[in-house]
Amino acid sequence: MRLVAEFTTEPFHGEGEPPEHAVAALRAVEAAGLETEFGPLGTTVSGDADEVVQALADVLRSSLSHGATRVTLQVEPADG
């Protein structure tokens, strides 16, 4: 099964460079080799279910350890 996940990390910052917690989360999914779209209000990833779930655990650890105060997550089957 393939999954699509979208997550946001907070606190949000205004214009300029993304906050450290958002960059750490992005690095976690990139390291997993997942298809990734990084945007100003969230990041979308897709791939094999096991790979996505493992990467999301890494996203939580890395973003929270780099200053995130909240991570919001949505996950759904890629074909649904």
Rank of each mutant, 00 (worst) to 15 (best):
P40A: 15
L73Q: 00
G67T: 08
E37D: 15
F7Y: 15
V59C: 02
T9K: 02
A24Q: 05
R61P: 04
E6L: 07
G16K: 09
G33M: 09
H13R: 14
F7L: 04
A24W: 05
T36H: 02
L64Y: 10
R70H: 10
G47I: 07
V75P: 00
G33Q: 11
M1C: 04
V59G: 00
E10I: 09
D48W: 04
P19F: 11
R61I: 08
V45G: 00
D48F: 03
M1S: 12
H13M: 07
T9D: 08
E76K: 10
V29L: 04
L41M: 15
T8Y: 02
V75T: 04
E35Y: 09
E17G: 06
V4L: 14
A24I: 05
D79T: 13
E51Y: 00
T43H: 06
R61Y: 07
E35L: 13
S65F: 01
G42I: 07
P19N: 13
E17M: 11
P40E: 11
V71N: 00
H21N: 10
A25W: 10
A22R: 04
T69H: 10
T43S: 13
T69N: 10
E20N: 05
L34E: 03
T43Q: 09
V4H: 01
V4G: 01
T8L: 05
R70W: 10
A68S: 14
A22C: 13
F38E: 03
G16A: 08
V71T: 12
T44C: 04
G67P: 08
A25H: 03
E6G: 02
L34Y: 03
V53W: 03
E51F: 01
E20A: 15
H66E: 14
D48I: 06
F12D: 04
E30S: 08
F12L: 08
R2P: 07
T43V: 13
H21A: 11
G33R: 11
P18N: 10
G16V: 08
P11G: 12
V29M: 06
T72W: 01
V4Y: 02
T43L: 08
R2F: 09
E6C: 04
A57E: 14
G67N: 09
F38L: 07
P11V: 14
A78D: 13
V75S: 00
P18S: 09
T9E: 04
R27L: 13
H66T: 07
V45L: 01
G33I: 09
V45A: 00
R70S: 05
E30R: 15
A55W: 01
T36Y: 03
Q54Y: 02
Q54V: 11
V29Q: 01
T72A: 13
P19M: 12
E76G: 11
Q54W: 08
P19E: 12
